[in-house]
């Protein structure tokens, strides 16, 4: 019951924050100096054509009215109309979202499958070479300019070694699998096309690693320090004294207790990954929301920028909430 009331309280508190988010996004996008009507009308358009357009887009109305219209639209799922693509931003988002989701999930998977074992390893072999290596790996991770890392990966694996493809989600000659989830790795398996799956896998490796590196570094550190904290506790010492095998102690007792902070940080980084996708997708020509928004920035397509910023921050807020709730379930010590 206490959890339910906690969740409700958190939800109620979300409303002003999300409203604030929309207001901030609205203010930012209206400070943009370009004239969207002019852009839409095209290079050689006449002045009347531009004026007509401005009126039909409601750009001649007072600001607060435009904001209210915008809010009312949002409630109905209307994120505005992309100037560049001439269609609702929501539809654009729907088209570009699966690629970003696929990349984000692949990165999460990497974070967990590489970060957790590496963290455990460096906790178990504390202050041994592997621990130092993992520390260096982590320091590089949090200090790495993601866009530069991407370029270096391309230079090495694509240009010089030729092991991995350079851009896009699939090779040019391969048709995308039939749409089910929009995630090629899943769709190709569902369609039973192993070749497409392997190709999609080859294409996702570099961008996924590039995107995940920062969080990989963080997760490794977190797992290491929480493992070390747990390993020093009494019950572990007792277990050890009782002659339980070290491997069992580590996998059964330590890991379980070290999992809570790991879950938290993993959850939190999903939101961050959505932001990091901006740079990674641009470098790897990955047709997701991040690349979409960078292209929109170059075009000053403000409904698109606004839509992206809003969607990502909403996702960010909601994921944070979910993490807090999960945390509340996992850790009985927490006070609501």
């Amino acid at each position: 019951m206490r959890i339910v009331s906690y969740v409700l309280k958190r939800l109620a508190y979300l409303v002003p924050v999300l409203l604030g988010v929309t207001l901030l996004v609205f203010i930012i996008s209206h400070a943009i100096p370009g004239d969207p009507a002019r852009m839409m009308a095209g290079q050689k358009a006449s002045r009347e054509a531009v004026e007509n357009l401005r009126r039909s887009m409601g750009l001649d109305r007072p600001l607060y009215e435009q904001y209210l219209r915008y809010l009312a639209g949002l409630v109905q799922g209307d994120l505005g109309f992309s100037i560049r693509n001439q269609r609702p931003v929501l539809e654009d988002m729907r088209d570009f979202f699966p690629a970003t989701l696929e990349l984000t999930l692949a990165s999460m998977l990497l974070c967990v499958t590489v970060g957790v074992p590496l963290g455990i390893l460096s906790a178990v072999r504390r202050n041994r070479p592997i621990d130092h290596l993992s520390r260096i790996f982590s320091v590089f991770g949090v200090s790495m300019p993601v866009f530069w890392l991407g370029l270096m990966l391309l230079l090495l694996f694509y240009r010089h070694l030729g092991w991995l493809p350079g851009s896009g989600r699939l090779d040019i000659g391969i048709d995308p699998p039939a749409f089910v989830t929009g995630i090629y790795l899943l769709d190709s398996l569902l369609a039973g096309s192993l070749g497409t799956f392997r190709n999609a896998l080859a294409h996702i490796l570099l961008p996924a690693f590039c995107l995940s590196y920062v969080y990989l570094a963080i997760i490794t550190r977190i797992v290491r320090s929480s493992m070390i904290a747990v390993m020093g506790l009494d019950f572990i010492t007792t277990a050890r004294a009782n002659g339980i095998a070290e491997i069992v102690i580590i996998s059964k007792h330590c890991l379980k207790n070290a999992l809570i902070p790991t879950v938290t940080i993993t959850g939190l980084s999903i939101g961050e990954l959505l932001g990091g996708a901006i740079l990674t997708e641009t470098i790897f020509n990955w047709p997701g929301m991040g690349k979409y928004v960078v292209d929109s920035v170059n075009f000053l397509d403000f409904p698109a920028i606004m839509g992206f910023t809003l969607v990502v921050s909403f996702a960010y807020v909601l994921i944070n909430l979910a993490v807090d709730v999960v945390y509340a379930f996992l850790d009985p010590q927490i006070r609501y």
Partner: peptide, 8 residues
């Protein structure tokens, strides 16, 4: 529609 192409 009166956008750019209209001038062409």
């Amino acid at each position: 529609i009166g956008k750019g192409p209209a001038d062409n």
